[in-house]
């Protein structure tokens, strides 16, 4: 049996007296894993420990079957890393930066040049790649950082808060890119964020950290509410909610009122949703919100964290 991608075993990391990671044990093997936690929870610290950048005072970490503390060269060549802070040389162009990082990781010059332009194209920087990085916006810097992390075709890539400083559109694109990296390019992704939604949209599994301790480690589908729990629609007024519930029930799709402006359909199938859409369109009722009825992922996580 192949060793898991990453195995963290009873790891303690201290900064001076400050306990940044407190006996964390977790196995990561999903195509895309989210590292979720508030500021200071220890997400970056855990990533750096896995990358072998800091040595735990206790415990063991293995990455791709190698001891993380002793596999620095393997990590440098087979792993990609997008740090949370700016880390690109301001007086070089993105193209030159990505090419030369690829070369440092062992790609011959021709492959480095070809793959660098592909990576920059993939992240949507092909137009600006010949400009100096000092003239980049935050979003462009994030993209360039992402490009350098995948250019050498790593087995696994660590993305530390990749959506920091991005506007909503940029954030959406970044999340779609991350999803593509794990889905289409077959690169394992470990992505950290303090925003649950980022992780829900990109990951298959989630590791939750709180104050340096592991709060939960789950596959997302076990946490995510399924359509079996039904769907809840929210409209603008209670009259509209009344009308929608009645119309749906009469049309053969059981629905009941929920809260002030809500309508819940216990059957969350696509057919029911089509009915809901058509009914809303027919009566000119604006749908404000449509979400799984049985609690949100947030609720599920809070449950997991307090168990």
């Amino acid at each position: 049996m192949a060793p898991p991608l990453i195995q963290v075993d009873d790891v303690v990391v201290k900064y001076g007296n400050h306990l940044a990671l407190d006996r964390v044990s977790v196995t990561v093997d999903a195509p895309a894993t989210g590292l979720l936690g508030a500021n200071g929870a220890g997400k970056s610290t855990l990533m750096k420990a896995i990358l072998g950048l800091l040595t735990p005072t206790q415990g063991r970490i293995s990455i791709m079957g190698h001891d993380a503390a002793k596999a620095a060269d393997l990590v440098r060549r087979r792993v990609g890393y997008m740090p949370e802070h700016d880390c690109l040389p301001p007086t070089m162009t993105a193209a030159d930066t990505v090419v030369h990082l690829a070369q440092l990781r062992g790609l011959p010059r021709r492959d480095a040049v070809r793959r660098a332009s592909e990576a920059l194209f993939t992240v949507g920087l092909e137009e600006e790649r010949s400009r100096l990085i000092e003239g980049y916006s935050q979003g462009m810097k994030q993209r360039a950082k992402l490009a350098q992390s995948i250019v050498h075709g790593p087995d696994v890539v660590f993305l530390d808060e990749p959506t920091t400083g991005l506007d909503p559109a940029g954030r959406g694109e970044m999340l779609a890119l991350i999803r593509r990296i794990s889905h289409d390019l077959g690169i394992h992704v470990i992505v950290s964020s303090h925003i649950l939604d980022d992780i829900r949209r990109t990951c298959d599994g989630v590791v939750v950290l709180r104050d340096g301790r592991l709060a939960a480690a789950e596959a997302l589908e076990t946490l995510a509410p399924t359509s079996a729990q039904g769907m809840r629609a929210e409209v603008g007024s209670s009259e509209a909610a009344d009308r929608l519930a009645t119309a749906l029930t009469q049309g053969g799709f059981p629905a009941h009122r929920d809260g002030e402006h809500g309508v819940v359909m216990p059957d969350g199938s696509d057919r029911s949703l089509d009915a809901l859409r058509d009914a809303a369109a027919h009566y000119g009722i604006a749908l404000r919100k449509l979400a799984p009825a049985g609690g949100t992922l947030e609720d599920a996580l809070v449950t997991a964290m307090t168990e």
């Binding site: 990358l51 990590v75 440098r76 890393y81 802070h85 880390c87 040389p89 301001p90 440092l104 350098q148």
Partner: peptide, 14 residues
């Protein structure tokens, strides 16, 4: 100044 060394040492060169 631009903290490129931290990136280098993590994933490029010792």
């Amino acid at each position: 100044q631009a903290r490129v060394t931290s990136l280098y040492f993590a994933t490029a060169i010792s």
